[in-house]
Computed example of a mutant assay.
Amino acid sequence: MPHLTIEYTDNLPQFNISGALLALNKALVASGHFEEVDIKSRAIQIGTFLIGTSSDNRAFVHVKLAILCGRSIQIKHELSESLLHVLKESEWPTKTHVQLCVEVQEIEREAYSKSFIGSLVA
Rank of each mutant, 00 (worst) to 15 (best):
6 I>T: 04
7 E>R: 10
8 Y>H: 09
9 T>P: 06
9 T>S: 09
10 D>H: 09
11 N>L: 08
12 L>N: 00
12 L>F: 04
12 L>I: 14
13 P>E: 12
15 F>G: 00
15 F>V: 14
15 F>A: 01
16 N>T: 14
16 N>P: 12
16 N>G: 06
17 I>W: 03
17 I>H: 05
20 A>W: 01
20 A>L: 04
20 A>V: 15
21 L>F: 03
21 L>V: 12
22 L>K: 14
22 L>W: 11
23 A>C: 10
23 A>N: 04
24 L>G: 01
26 K>M: 14
26 K>T: 07
27 A>P: 15
28 L>M: 13
30 A>C: 05
30 A>R: 00
30 A>F: 01
30 A>N: 11
30 A>V: 11
30 A>K: 08
31 S>Y: 00
31 S>I: 07
32 G>W: 06
33 H>L: 09
37 V>R: 08
39 I>F: 04
39 I>G: 14
41 S>K: 09
41 S>F: 01
44 I>D: 06
46 I>S: 07
47 G>M: 09
47 G>C: 04
48 T>S: 05
49 F>H: 12
50 L>E: 05
50 L>H: 14
50 L>Y: 05
51 I>D: 00
52 G>D: 07
54 S>M: 01
54 S>T: 03
54 S>K: 06
55 S>Y: 06
55 S>K: 02
59 A>L: 07
59 A>Y: 01
59 A>P: 01
60 F>D: 08
62 H>I: 09
62 H>T: 11
62 H>V: 08
63 V>L: 12
64 K>L: 09
64 K>M: 06
64 K>C: 03
65 L>Q: 01
66 A>R: 01
66 A>G: 11
67 I>L: 02
67 I>P: 00
68 L>I: 03
68 L>K: 03
69 C>I: 12
69 C>Y: 09
71 R>T: 01
73 I>R: 02
76 K>I: 01
76 K>H: 07
77 H>G: 12
77 H>D: 15
77 H>Q: 14
78 E>P: 00
80 S>C: 12
83 L>E: 05
84 L>Y: 07
85 H>K: 03
86 V>C: 05
86 V>E: 09
87 L>A: 15
87 L>N: 08
88 K>Q: 15
88 K>H: 08
89 E>Q: 15
91 E>S: 10
92 W>C: 04
93 P>H: 09
93 P>F: 11
97 H>T: 13
97 H>K: 15
98 V>M: 06
98 V>F: 12
99 Q>K: 15
99 Q>N: 13
99 Q>E: 10
99 Q>Y: 15
100 L>V: 14
100 L>D: 09
101 C>F: 13
101 C>Q: 11
102 V>F: 05
102 V>M: 07
103 E>L: 04
104 V>E: 01
105 Q>M: 13
105 Q>I: 02
106 E>P: 00
109 R>C: 13
109 R>W: 07
111 A>K: 10
115 S>W: 08
117 I>V: 07
117 I>C: 03
117 I>P: 00
118 G>Q: 09
119 S>I: 14
119 S>L: 11
119 S>T: 15
119 S>K: 10
120 L>H: 10
121 V>W: 08
121 V>I: 11
122 A>I: 06
122 A>D: 02
